[in-house]
Design a protein around this nucleic acid. Structure first.
Length: 645
RNA sequence: GCCUAUGUAGCUCAGUUGGUCAGAGCAGCUGAUUUGUAAUCAGCCGGUCGGCGGUUCGAAUCCGUCCAUAGGCUCCA
């Protein structure tokens, strides 16, 4: 007998070799129907795999993340089976589950799959799923495994097997499809009731662009048709929030083929919005002891050779700019730091001067690969809200804290409640990869971890993700479609102080090397505004929006009064405009709603009579009648509250 | 850069097998209307159908190529 501990800590006895499915049946038939896999001592297993010793288990269903992962992983096999049936002779790479669904990388040889083929793959999958094919687990020796796939001629699987140890190789068979796979899988294909092939894309084998490109097929499945429908509706909703759509509609930015791809043109409303963001941060930075600096957009090639950026950005980037002077070359700056390093160096520095915090909204240019450009989130010319802090190694912790204050202040003012904090440390087993002394790395990494802990940031810690020049902390936010974008970043740098031979005179009257921190709370203005648009679905926070209110006179007769209202509002620092078109009020309201202007102030005979406005809030409706003073107070109070630290 | 799609007025989209197929709505302009919480009416303007080649008596429609965009891959703010 084995003792099985359930999540509620109750212990039940079963025969040795009992399966998760058996246990589910002993609880209820309904549960048995819904169980997708089982967690056994923290490891996810097939629900049909025998349990041979005492264990703590959790039955996994669609409501569990791991349950869905099992379903999707099995669905990837099902899709592969369907593809093999429809396109005999194809070879398979890898086919994992992902956050939302699954994919399979396929070598189709001469054939190709386009979205016109999705339907027939979906149909075949459903047809196979209905056969209730069991997923059978089989342990294989390395030799057996290699034999099988050499006979099949699938060099991808052979390569994968080659890297595995004998004794840890398992195959799964469902229907006619046999795959190298760690599992776990569904008991059978029957829970897969709704299928959607989402997209087809090229993907390099093992992510290596020097190797063959396979066809990656993305899909998603659900236990109920209704869930698929809801998922597709969710995708539609997400599309409505897309900054590329809203950015166009709200006239934030545009691109011109003549100016060039990846080079955004900020329209008046977008420029206003961006300037307001910049003013906000400038004020915060001023209060935090930053000093503004301004540097040019280009610098001599030698500058970037010193900084080391030439090696990284020189080859696949904008080519240097020639001058009439022979051998004189300038580089469009891909980073602001080299210029700032030179500012540090323009005079001798004392330990009493540190920390020095140099801030600049610096525009940089990087030649991103053409396939990488994406709205405002990935462009070729962008402005970083950059600053470099030069400090002693002992000051790193307090400087980090100061930067996080700024990041949190920004997130609060913009109502970013959900963000991911990632701390990237070095891989201590591979120290050669990194520049800087052990002692300094340890000190900085400890400081970052302590800061994250003290502030309750719940940071994801990634070892080996640090830059070669120092550890860092990044802040990430998801866009409308769930893709993560890195916004703010704080990075320690041991490299540039060396390369630029920076020094300060210590209390001991000896030269010392300062530490350097790069930081950008927004990341870049372009990406930040893009993510902001998606985050608020185009309804910008009141303090930021280009137009806070629009005055809607009922008819031409109240035009004069509308102008008076506008003037008063301007006196209260409220940004407003008048819709003086000869349209009906309903139309003016509709247009203002679509433009997402927060407040509509309707004025007619009644309002003119008692010097008031009738306030309608965007997305909410009529708020009633306000005196202009009271309305202004309400707006200004809301603004104050949002941007307060 | 690579894979797979897409590209028709400022915007959103029709356009069946190549032959009155260059259209609609919104926006814009003009005029009428003077309007009370999500669309007043009428008229007008607007496109060498992404660019360039080719096939054809004839191309928005078929083919090639280039450019741009979209979803991925690699890379990054």
């Amino acid at each position: 007998m084995v003792n099985i501990t359930l999540p509620d800590n109750s212990v039940k006895q079963f025969e040795e070799g009992v399966t998760g499915l058996d246990i589910a049946k002993s609880i209820s038939e309904g549960l048995a129907r819904n169980v997708l896999s089982v967690k056994v001592n923290g490891e996810v297993w097939d629900a049909t795999r025998p349990i041979m010793e005492d264990a703590r288990i959790k039955l996994l269903t669609w409501d569990d993340k791991e349950g869905r992962a099992t379903m999707w992983h099995s669905s990837a096999h099902l899709m592969a089976e369907a593809v093999e049936k429809l396109y005999p002779g194809v070879k398979f790479g890898i086919g994992p589950d992902i956050d939302q669904g699954f994919y399979y990388d396929i070598d189709l040889g001469e054939k190709s799959i386009t979205d016109a083929d999705f339907r027939k793959i979906e149909d075949t999958m459903l047809q196979l799923a209905r056969q209730k094919q069991a997923f059978d687990r089989e342990e294989k020796s390395k030799k057996e495994a290699l034999d099988y796939f050499s006979k099949k001629g699938d060099e991808y699987k052979l390569e994968l097997i080659d890297e595995l140890q004998d004794g840890e190789i398992t195959f799964y068979k469902s229907g006619d499809f046999v795959d190298l796979c760690r599992g776990p899988h569904l008991p059978d294909t029957s829970p897969i009731k709704a299928v959607k092939i989402l997209s087809v894309a090229g993907a390099y084998w093992r992510g290596d662009e020097t190797r063959k490109q396979l066809t990656r097929l993305y899909g998603i499945t659900f236990p109920k048709q209704k869930q698929l429908k809801e998922y597709l509706e969710l995708l539609e909703e997400a599309k409505k929030r897309d900054h590329r759509k809203l950015g166009k509609e709200l006239e934030i930015y545009t691109f011109s083929q003549k100016v060039g791809p990846g080079l955004p043109l900020w329209l008046p409303k977008g420029a206003q919005l961006r300037e307001r963001l910049e003013q906000f941060l400038k004020k915060v930075q001023q209060d935090a002891g930053y000093e503004p600096v301004i540097t040019p957009h280009i610098g001599k090639v030698e500058l970037y050779k010193t900084s080391g950026h030439y090696a990284k950005y020189g080859e696949d980037s904008f080519k240097p700019i020639q001058t009439p002077v022979k051998n004189e070359e300038f580089f469009l700056k891909p980073m602001n730091c080299p210029h700032h390093c030179e500012i540090y160096k323009y005079k001798p520095r004392s330990y009493r001067d540190l920390p020095i915090r140099m801030a600049e909204f610096g525009t940089v240019y990087r030649y991103e690969q053409s396939g990488e450009l994406h709205g405002l989130t990935r462009v070729r010319g962008f402005t970083q809200d950059d600053a470099h802090i030069f400090c002693t190694h002992d000051q790193i912790k307090s400087e980090f804290n100061g930067v996080i204050d700024i990041v949190m202040h920004i997130f609060k003012a913009l109502d970013f409640k959900e963000f991911i904090t990632q701390v990237s440390l070095r891989d201590s087993r591979d120290k050669e990869k990194y520049i800087g002394t052990d002692e300094n790395w340890e000190k900085a990494e400890k400081a970052i971890l302590e800061v994250a802990e003290e502030r309750g940031l719940d940071a994801k810690i990634e070892y080996g993700e640090a830059a070669f020049y120092g550890p860092k902390m990044d802040f990430m936010v998801k866009d409308a479609l769930g893709r993560e974008w890195q916004l703010g970043t704080i990075q320690v740098d041991y490299n540039l102080p060396d390369r630029f031979n920076m020094e300060y005179v210590g209390a001991d009257n000896m030269p010392h090397r300062p530490a350097m921190i790069h930081r950008a709370p927004f990341g870049s203005m372009e990406r930040f505004v893009a993510v902001l648009i998606e985050h608020c679905a185009g309804k910008f926070p009141l303090w930021l929006t280009p137009e806070q209110a629009i005055v809607l006179p009922i008819s031409e007769k109240y035009q004069k009064y509308a102008e008076k209202v506008l003037k008063l509002l301007n006196n209260y620092d409220i940004r407003a405009l008048i819709d003086d078109r000869s349209e009906k009020t309903g139309k003016k309201i509709r247009d203002a709603e679509l433009k997402k202007i927060p407040f509509m102030l309707i004025v007619g005979e009644k309002e003119e009579g008692d010097g008031t406005v009738s306030v309608r809030k965007q997305g909410e409706g009529d708020l009633g009648t306000f005196s202009i003073e009271k309305f202004a107070e309400m707006v200004n109070r809301e603004v104050e509250e949002m941007i307060a630290p």
